[in-house]
C-alpha cells in the first residue's frame, strides 16, 4: 500500500496540473507505489502568501489521526469524511478564492497525503476490464466535487451554518448527497444546502437513491422558483472570515473529539431553512425514486 511521503517540507505548496499528471502513475492508483516526494517537491510552486495557515504539519497530523482512528476498517468509511471535512476546513482557514486553486488540492493529495487518498478511495472490486482495483485519477487531481480533499473542504464550506459544522457531519453521512449536491449550483444558496441536510436529519432521506432523487427534484424546481427570494439568506459579511484567518497564527490544533468552530459568520435565518425544508419535503414526496417500493434499500456507503 502507498506509504506516507518520506519528505514532508515545512510548508504547503502548489502543484500545477502538468506536474501533478506526471506523478499520478498506474502504480500509485493501484496503491503499489509511493510518490517520489523529494522530486515532487522540486516541481512545486510557492504559495503567494506566507502565513501560519500554510504549515504542512497540522494538516499531516490530521491525516495521521484519521488513518489511526479508522485503522481497523478495511478502508476509511464515510465516517472518516465526516470527521475530516470540518477539521480540514478549520485547520486550513482558506478564503474561497484560495480554495478555488486546484493546485493546492493536487499538492495535498500527492505531496502531503497520497497514502490517505489511496486508502480512502481504492475500490474493493477489480476494474471492469479485470485489472487491479484502482483509484480514480480525479481523486488526486480534479474538479472540486471529486478531488479527495477539495470535496471535503467544499462540503464543509457549503454545508456549514456560520461557525457550526454540525450540518457538514450530517451531509457527509450520505455520500450520494455529497456527490450529487456538491456539483449543483443550488447548494451555493445556504438555506437550500441546510434544508437538504434537515431532510436527512428528519429521516425523510435515508438512502443514496433517495438523496439523488431529492437533489434532482430540488435542482429542477430551481429553474422556475427563486429560492433566494422565498427563503432569504442573511447578508454575507467578510469581516468574521478575515478575523478567523488572522487568528490562525495563534490558534491551537483543532480538537480531535469536539467539533471545531468555523468563522463567526451569521447563521442562515432559521425561518428560511424551515420554509425550504417543508417545500423540499413536498417536492420529494412527488419525486420518482429508483426502487422506492423496496422499503429496505440499504444506506449508501
Amino acid at each position: 500500500m502507498t506509504a506516507r511521503p518520506e519528505h514532508l517540507p515545512e510548508r504547503l505548496a502548489l502543484l500545477a496540473d502538468m506536474q501533478a499528471a506526471t506523478y499520478i502513475t498506474e502504480g500509485l492508483l493501484t496503491g503499489r507505489e509511493d510518490v517520489p516526494s523529494i522530486a515532487l517537491n522540486k516541481a512545486t510552486e510557492e504559495l503567494p502568501v506566507d502565513d501560519a495557515r500554510f504549515r504542512l504539519r497540522p494538516v499531516r497530523d490530521l491525516i495521521d489521526d484519521v488513518m489511526h482512528k479508522f485503522r481497523d476498517d478495511e478502508r476509511p468509511p464515510t465516517a472518516a469524511d465526516a470527521w475530516l471535512a470540518p477539521r480540514l476546513h478549520a485547520t486550513l482557514r482558506l478564503t474561497r478564492r484560495e480554495a478555488a486553486d486546484a493546485r493546492l488540492w493536487s499538492y495535498l493529495a500527492l505531496g502531503v497525503a497520497p497514502d490517505y487518498v489511496v486508502r480512502r478511495h481504492l475500490p474493493a472490486t477489480p476494474r471492469k476490464d479485470g485489472g487491479a482495483p484502482s483509484v480514480a485519477r480525479a481523486r488526486f487531481r480534479g474538479v472540486h466535487y471529486t478531488q479527495a480533499f477539495a470535496r471535503l473542504w467544499w462540503t464543509a464550506e457549503l454545508f456549514r451554518n456560520g461557525p457550526d459544522y454540525a450540518p457538514v457531519v450530517v451531509a457527509c453521512g450520505n455520500q450520494d448527497m455529497l456527490n450529487t449536491a456538491l456539483r449543483m449550483d443550488v447548494v451555493d444558496h445556504r438555506p437550500t444546502a441546510l434544508a437538504l441536510v434537515r431532510l436527512i436529519e428528519r429521516g425523510v432521506i435515508r438512502t443514496g437513491r433517495e438523496a439523488n432523487a431529492l437533489a434532482s427534484a430540488v435542482n429542477a424546481s430551481a429553474a422556475t422558483l427563486m429560492y433566494d427570494v422565498v427563503a432569504q439568506d442573511s447578508e454575507r459579511d467578510a469581516e468574521p472570515l478575515r478575523d478567523w484567518i488572522a487568528a490562525a497564527e495563534g490558534a491551537s490544533p483543532v480538537s480531535r473529539n469536539a467539533l471545531p468552530e468555523g468563522p463567526q459568520e451569521e447563521r442562515a435565518p432559521e425561518n428560511s431553512v424551515v420554509v425550504l425544508t417543508d417545500y423540499f419535503e413536498g417536492l420529494y414526496a412527488d419525486a420518482p425514486v429508483r426502487g422506492r417500493e423496496l422499503a429496505s434499500d440499504p444506506p449508501a456507503g
Binding site: T95, R96, T224, L225, V230
Partner: peptide, 24 residues
C-alpha cells in the same frame, strides 16, 4: 475573497403566479 476570476451577473424578475410565490 469570494472570487477568483470572472463572476456572472444577471437579473431576474420574481413574482407570485397562480398563488405560487417566488416564480421566476
Amino acid at each position: 475573497p469570494d472570487h477568483l476570476d470572472r463572476a456572472t451577473l444577471s437579473v431576474h424578475v420574481v413574482a407570485t403566479v397562480d398563488g405560487v410565490p417566488g416564480r421566476i
